[in-house]
Every structure is written in C-alpha cells, then in structure tokens.
Design a protein around this nucleic acid. Structure first.
Lengths: 345, 345
DNA sequence: ATAAATATTGGAAAGGCTTCCATAGCGGAA
DNA sequence: TTCCGCTATGGAAGCCTTTCCAATATTTAT
C-alpha cells in the first residue's frame, strides 16, 4: 500500500541496503548512487516509516518530561530551553503534566512498563524512593530538574546562594528588619531559600525573628493558598497581611521566595497604604514577566539554560550508557529594579 | 537480550498468539490459560515492546499538539483538558511550541514526512493554505483549536458572541461611552471580538467612535507591545494611556479583548488616579487566574472543555476515517466581579 | 453416542527498517 | 598481467508484535 524502501530500491535499480544508506547519510555510498536513490525517493513520494525505523534501531527519538501542572514563566522558559535543545537533536518532546503525586507514580509505572521514550526529565517533583530504584534498574536515563537528588542526575538552581544574595542585597541597602514570605516550608526550594536567608542574616548579626517568617503552610489551608505548593499570589497576599499585623514591629524589607508571592505581598502592602520601596522594600525570586512590569527587584533563575542543560545531559546519558551520576548547580543573578532602594534615599 | 513474547510463550507452554491475546484482553482466550500466561509474564518480568506493537498495529498512540509559545492560563487550562482526555484514551501528548510561523511550516513538514503521531491539534495558529492541502492529502486527522477554519475541523469559542455579551453588560450598567482595547487587529479572535463589540453598540444605537478603539498594532511597535500577538500587559497599559489622553471625551467603560490587556489597562487607569469601577469600568475576556485576584469582571472561556472536545474529536477522526469536516463553537460565560458596576451606584 | 457448532489455540506471515556479511568492482603496486 | 586492499553494493536476518487461518478441543444438540 504505502511506498517502502523496496519500491525505492527497485525504481533506482539498487538494493535496499543502498537505499537505507542513502537516507541515513552513510559515507559508504557513491555520491552518484545516492543521487539516483534520492531521485527515486522524490518520484515515488517515499517517506520512511518511523515506527519501523524505531523498531530496527531501538531508538525512539522521544524524551518525556514530567512536570507539575503549574503555570507560569518558570516552566515556560524551561520548556523553551528544552524544546530548543531537543530540536537540535531532532528529538520530540512528550509532556505529561501531573497534578497529584499519585499521578506521578502511575505515569512512571506506565513509562517503565512500556518503553515509550529514550530518556526522562522529571521537573520540580519529588520522586518516591521505590521509583528511584526502579528507574535505575530499568537503566532509563533520567535527569531531575529543579530539585536535588543524590542518586540521580540533577540540575538545580543555587537556591541557597540566591536567597543569600537577595537577603544580602536588602542588608546592603540598610535594612535591619528583614522578613521572608515563603511557599510551603517542606518543599525543597523553600527550605534552601530559607537557609540562604538565615545565613545572610547571621553573617551580619541580624535577628532571625520567627514572627518575621511566614510560609504558606502557616496560613489558612484554603485551596487558593495551598495551590502550586504555596507559591502563589494568594499566599503572598495573606502572608504580607500577617507581617503587617505586627504593627511597628513589622519588617521594613521582605524577601519573597518567589515573584508571584512578592506580587501578592506588594498588593497587600499597597492596600494598607504603604508605598514600595519607601515604606517597604520587596525582593522576589524567579524574574517572571510580571516582575519587570511591576518593577520588582528579583533573583533571576537561568531557566532557559536549565532546560537546555537538562536535555544535553539526558542525551549524553542515552549515548554513553554510563552510570555516572552528576549534579549540576546553576547560579542566580540579581536583577535590580525599583522595589528596593537604599534606605533614606 | 530482552524478554519477548516467545520467551513468555515457552514458559507458559502456549503459543505466541495466545500470549498476545492474553496481553490484549482478547475474549478469545480461556481464563485459566490467560492466568497462566500472566503468571509467566510476571515471572519473567516481560514488558511489551512498544515500537514493535506500533509497527504491527499501525497505531502510534500519540497525538501531537502544535501551539504558540505563549504562556498563560488559557493554554494551561487547554492543556489540562487535552491531557485529561488523552489519558482516558491511553494516548500520549507530543507538544511542539512554535515561536515563529516558519517553525510551524518546518514542523508540519516533518510531521507529514514521518508519521510520528496519529492526529494533530493545531492551536491558536493560522495554517498556510498549501499545508491545508498537504494535511488533507496525507489524511492525517487534524483539529484546529482556537481558530476557525472552513476546510478543517475546528473548535473555537464564540468570540463574537462573547464580545457582544461583554459590551452589552457594560451598556446594561448604564455606560454610553464604551471603548475597546484589543490585540493585533488582524488576528482572528481580535476581529471577531471587535465585531461583537460593534454589534452590541449598534443594537443600542450607541456611537462606534474610532478613537475609542485601540489595538496593539496601532501602538508603538516595540517588541514588548507586539508579543503574544498584541495580547499582553504592555499593550493594555499603552492602550489605556491612549484612551486617557482623550481627556473628558474618554470612554467611561472599556472592553478589553483579553484579561491581560485589562490588567495593563487597569494599572494605567489607577496610575492616572482613576478608581475602578467608579471612574472607569473594565471588562476582560478569558478569566485568567489574575482576573479573580484583581476582581476583574470578564467573559470566561471554556478552555478545559475545548481541550477535551479537541481530543475527543481527533480520536473520533482517527477511528472513523471519514472525511467529514465539523466546526464546533463553544459559548462564553459572564463572570461578574467588581471591575464593573451599575453607573451611579 | 455422534455429528455439528463453537470456543481455543498455534504459529506463519506481515509490518518496514537497519545491519552485517559476503560479494563485486576498482585502482594501483609488483 | 596478476594480486592486493579498498570501497561500494545486495540482500538475508533480525527487531517484536499482531493478525489471520488452519487445526484442535470442547460443547451442545440430536
């Protein structure tokens, strides 16, 4: 029914092996022969059968990405980096969005029981221990993105260092009373950023006051506030309210563990009649689109690079078959805008 | 090397056909035989080879989605719907983000020359005429989402009707001077929404004043303002500035062709000292996450349903092999919040 | 008990490609 | 002219399923 290499071979007066070599840019073929084959291919309108090829080569040409069902700039940029790199390898991207942890298990089971991709990118998700074993046993190349891992390859941003720099930035500008608003404390990035915040404060001998730290899980457990692991606008808003309730004892500057938290926080502050940065300085983390628009000082994460690196690494693993595990850490960059300024200026 | 059905067949003491039947829940097998086979499968740790299966069945189990590289709630929800439906069919989703129209061509060429999916969803994109022919000729099931099309199956929201209802809502609240801020005029949704806006005005005998209509392409061609086809926060901001420059002659209410435009517009209005909804009413279109947060009245698009419907339809086409072309239109719903209120209340 | 109908089963063939090995063709060295 | 050592070529075998048809086992009807 459809045109196969046999048809092409007959038409070009060559063997099927030669046709295959012509298609795959093998050096083992005379240029003129190749030309004749290519001509036959064009005449017959031949297109290679992808599945047959995959069966024969055992290469699928697909990388799967599993990621949480969050929206936002972070994933957008990450995907852009992934896509860019993948296109260069002529690989396709299979995405699977996950909204609940059980779904991750289900998907991993399916991926492991049917080989549907050559490699896997697990983004912003914690991997149940038993699946780490399964993944390693199946020898499926995996790169964990936006989370650290000791037994799997991983790529993450220097969260601790970034938070340290952000807090230091506020200290440099003369702030002594520095609060932090965070997503759920138990999430990996939240923990690391908290540590960086504390380190910067300690280094300058500033107080780490428990009441100046608010995280989403400390607030009402409304679905709004818990979504996206507590990194959402509502948590930022409610968190800031909590800080403002402290009255005169409130922080004069706030490090928000993500830009979207900062946006909610700024809104609460504005509504309370505070102007930013005069009455309150705010620094975020991520550098989302809205940050530029609202002139929010923030720590930029190299998301695009992270995506690219993740793909490069997983392709490397696919090719090498080596079991070596490598951890990558990318650094953040301070983007100064107008939500922070030297005190008294 | 790897375990195949032959190994399973030998172990279970049956033929390979029987193994295949056991795996695929064929009714043509005795329950006890099936049990024996399943046992052998477990013992050997057999997993079916996906590519071989695909070669044999000519079913790939993948739907590809091509979509623009926009971020935002709209695509988020759409993907959620797509994913949900696909999971039910046990199909995978291949996504390809496109940032420039040439890329669309390149991807379509690749998709057409190698059969890498069973069906295609083309989202929010205009399809070059020549590719319409190619797609039809290749008999690849295609559903166009968020755009109309006369020769291909398509699913879109009732843009005209939605805009009509939005404008009518403003009129009902007593507004007579109603402006509109839009993305690029040449984009399909922008055109349709403009028509709805005009229809509502005409119906009530209100003036359609050219200076009350601003679209992204009428503004400075900075990259910021042109991104996302003019449906972005910067265009909303600049557009509102333009309207405010009209002084006393400015509209008292504005229909923004998307929520994100409305957000920019509201910001400009706030900065100019106007309060919403008292000094200016604003209605958006989309119902993005931020709309709820900012209490923006808007027209909600059934994006999740759209995604689900798109998948259902493309699966239907895959199964039926019929060439029938169907157009779907989903209606929008008014979500009243606080950015609009009856005049004088 | 026996024929007829039905339910199960086995395995060859098909699906379309890559790869490997044997063979053919070629130019240059002896 | 005869070999040798390359490169280029042909095509069988292999990748792993599904499917179809023939063969066998089991029921059911008589």
């Amino acid at each position: 029914m459809s045109v196969t290499i046999y048809d092409v071979a007959r038409r070009a007066g060559v063997g099927i092996g030669t046709v295959s070599r012509a298609i795959n840019d093998s050096p083992q073929i005379r240029p003129e022969t190749k030309k004749r084959v290519m001509e036959a291919i064009r005449e017959l309108g031949y297109t290679p059968h992808t599945m047959a090829k995959r069966l024969a080569t055992k290469r699928i040409g697909i990388i799967a990405a599993i990621m949480p069902f969050y929206t936002g700039h972070f994933y957008h940029e990450l995907l852009r980096g992934i896509q860019k790199a993948l296109t260069e390898f002529e690989y396709d991207l299979l995405v699977h969005f996950v909204d609940r942890p059980e779904k991750l298990r289900a998907y991993l089971d399916r991926t492991l029981s049917e080989k549907r991709c050559d490699g896997l990118l697990i983004i912003s998700m914690d991997i149940p221990e038993e699946y780490v074993d399964k993944l390693q046993h199946a020898r499926l190349p995996v790169v964990v993105v936006d989370r650290g891992h000791d037994r799997l390859d991983c790529i993450q941003v220097e969260n601790e260092q970034g938070a340290y720099l952000a807090t230091q930035h506020l200290i440099r500008f003369g702030h002594r009373k520095i609060g932090m608003i965070s997503g759920n404390r138990h999430s990996e990035p939240a923990k690391q950023r908290y540590e960086g915040y504390v380190r910067a404060l300690n280094e300058d001998g500033l107080a780490v006051r428990p009441e100046w730290f608010v995280s989403a899980d400390m607030l009402n457990a409304t679905p709004d506030i818990q979504q996206n692991d507590g990194f959402n606008i509502h948590a930022g808003y409610a968190g800031m309210h909590r800080l403002l309730a402290l009255g005169d004892d409130r922080p004069t500057a706030v490090f928000a563990a993500s830009d979207i938290l900062a946006v909610g926080a700024m809104r609460a502050a504005n509504e309370a009649g505070l102007t930013i940065p005069n009455d309150l300085a705010v620094i975020g983390f991520d550098d989302i689109e809205l940050a530029d628009y609202l002139s929010l000082t923030t720590m930029q994460q190299p998301m695009y690079e992270m995506g690219k690196l993740a793909v490069d690494r997983v392709m490397e693993k696919i090719d090498s078959e080596s079991d070596e595990v490598r951890q990558f850490r990318l650094s953040t960059r301070l983007i100064e805008r107008h939500s922070t300024q030297p005190i008294g200026s």
